[in-house]
């Protein structure tokens, strides 16, 4: 394969991935309330409408509240679990790791239905709390994987040294381990937040009619009346994800987080 052919292939794939987003970005700046491309005129009013129109502003508020709290809760579950798995090792640790990532690995509709019957049984069906907790459990996998990767980097002699010098486990964690894994904890948190913002099926199944989120709102608009606000939301979501993952890449080593070996630095 020549270099030109290789670059051409990468380019073609990137065009395939960008094209729908590009058209959506164009549609979002239409002046009339229609989804035209090329856009008819240029206006940013639909981005303002998102914050002004009641149904959309409510959905935005719900989405942000759910994503933030679910992200925090996911880290609260994943961090101690990752530490336990890391320091104990063995079969039980691997089983617990599997339990932690299972909700994310199953077909989403299966997890969603599981959550639905659970919240009906405990009487919280339709409550925003149900969405928050369900999202947190569903997304625990992300901080769990990220923090576990970070812990692999922590050198055990460092901890032994701290222990020998008389530090108890809590002090070692606070002064040695946590500073080392902090970037991974943050990456795990933001991954969970971004995916929660985008998540549709679980939010829809457990409280779709009462705690409406942005993806639910978009899907309803797909059925009952298109508006360029949908496109504006899509653009904001892509930008949020790009900024967040860009920051993760800037602060850390993204290829390494993806699992590439650091030693292969060209």
């Amino acid at each position: 394969m020549t270099l030109l052919l290789q670059r051409g292939f990468i380019g073609a794939v990137l065009v395939f991935l960008v094209a729908p987003l590009f058209v959506v970005a164009g549609v979002s700046v239409n002046r009339p309330k229609r989804l035209l491309f090329p856009p008819d005129g240029f206006s940013l009013k639909w981005y303002i409408e998102l914050f002004v129109q009641n149904e959309w502003a409510n959905a935005l508020t719900n989405s942000v509240i759910i994503a933030m709290l679910a992200g925090l809760l996911a880290v609260a579950v994943a961090l101690p679990l990752a530490l336990f798995i890391w320091s104990r090792g063995g079969l039980l640790a691997r089983a617990l790791f599997g339990l932690g990532i299972a909700p994310f690995m199953l077909p989403p509709v299966v997890s969603a239905l599981g959550f639905l019957v659970f919240w009906i049984s405990v009487g919280l069906y339709g409550n925003i709390l149900a969405t928050i907790v369900s999202h947190a459990i569903f997304l625990t996998a992300l901080p769990l994987v990220a923090i576990s990767l970070g812990l692999e980097e922590v050198e055990r002699p460092l901890i032994e040294a701290a222990r020998t010098m008389g530090a108890d486990r809590r002090t070692v964690f606070r002064t040695v381990v946590f500073p080392l894994i902090r970037p991974y904890v943050i990456s795990g948190f933001v991954f969970a937040v971004v995916l929660s913002l985008n998540e549709y099926i679980i939010a829809y199944m457990v409280a779709g009619f009462t705690a409406e989120t942005l993806p639910i709102r978009i899907f309803n608009s797909l059925r009952y009346g298109y508006t360029p606000i949908m496109a504006a939301v899509a653009v904001l979501f892509v930008l949020t994800a790009a900024v967040v993952f860009g920051a993760v890449a800037f602060l850390g080593d993204l290829p390494r987080l993806f699992g590439a070996h650091r030693s292969e630095e060209p």
Binding site: P20, E199, Y200, I218, A234
Partner: peptide, 15 residues
């Protein structure tokens, strides 16, 4: 990867 099916579906149906 982070985009939900809603947005992917909407983007492709627009394209």
């Amino acid at each position: 990867l982070s985009l939900s099916e809603v947005i992917i579906g909407f983007a492709w149906s627009t394209l």
